[in-house]
Amino acid sequence: MAMKANGDAPRKMIGRTVLRPREQVEETIRAAILSGELKSGEMLPPEAELARQFNVSRTTLREALRVLSSQHLINKVPGARGGNFVQSIDYHSLGDVMMESVDNLLALGSIEFDEVAEVRQQLEVPAVRLAAANRTDEHVQQLTAIVERQKTASVDDPEIPELDRQFHTLIARASGNRVLASFVAALHHATEPVHYLDLSPSVGRETVKQHQQIVRAIQRQDPDAGETAVVKHLTYLRRHITAHRTR
């Protein structure tokens, strides 16, 4: 069999796209942050020094820093003692980034409220099941304290939305899954179900009663009872929210 001529042999690909100076600065700083070379909360060198190190203009450097800031990897603090600081990279920051993104998409009309609310409710079922399995005594005490405060608060108490947020996000944290906790917290913030309820005294009492049932299931470490209670609660909320929003 005849050998292929050298000209017909497959060519080895050794080249790759050469990054522009701004992209090179971004990639280098991003890699330093993600590798841990730059620690959470650490201040980057002054911009003039960074521009000298990268051998780029101050304008190019600032463009790169703006991109990194938009990606929530660094935070620019103004003032004499300010500078560019590495953002905290943990599950809390994951929730913050997601919260901001969902809020922006809702404000722009790119996604619908009902879509976000549906996903949040779907995530709260496994959150309760995991919380029933993994909760600590401290989690139960904190949930009980929140419900006790809800029982004594009037429906027009401005603290009600915050108590509701604390209740649902604490259950998600008790699940032991930090990614799930971040998602539930972000989506609950975006939908804030209490704001969309016609919160009459009867609705308020029923909501607290349902919260108590959820806490009892978590306390008994009964995931099936927890799922039943949270599905009942979320179905009730959704029905009342839909009725209130379509008026």
Rank of each mutant, 00 (worst) to 15 (best):
L19S: 04
T242Y: 04
P46F: 13
G83M: 12
L61V: 08
Q122A: 05
G15M: 09
I171H: 00
L105M: 03
D90T: 13
I74W: 07
L234V: 04
S101N: 11
L237E: 07
R30L: 13
A185S: 13
I171P: 04
I214E: 13
A9D: 08
I74N: 07
A190R: 02
R22K: 15
V203H: 03
V25G: 04
M98D: 01
P161V: 10
S182V: 00
P223Q: 12
L234M: 08
V140N: 03
R149C: 05
E227H: 09
I33Q: 10
S40V: 13
R173I: 01
H72I: 01
A32Y: 12
Q219W: 09
H244N: 12
A2V: 04
G41W: 14
L237D: 00
T228P: 02
V179M: 06
A117S: 03
Q150S: 15
K12W: 08
T246M: 11
G83A: 05
Q121F: 05
E206D: 07
E206S: 10
V18D: 10
E124I: 11
G36Q: 11
F183T: 00
L237R: 04
S182R: 09
V119E: 03
D114I: 03
Y196G: 03
R216N: 15
P193I: 10
E27R: 15
D96Y: 12
S101T: 09
R81T: 14
R62W: 03
T136R: 02
L61D: 09
G204Q: 06
D137M: 09
E23C: 00
R216A: 15
V125S: 06
I241G: 00
F167L: 13
F183E: 05
R16Y: 15
A229P: 12
H72F: 05
I33V: 15
R52L: 11
T235R: 06
F54P: 14
V230H: 06
V194F: 11
G176D: 09
L163Y: 09
R135Y: 02
R11I: 01
N6L: 01
L237V: 03
K76D: 05
E206T: 11
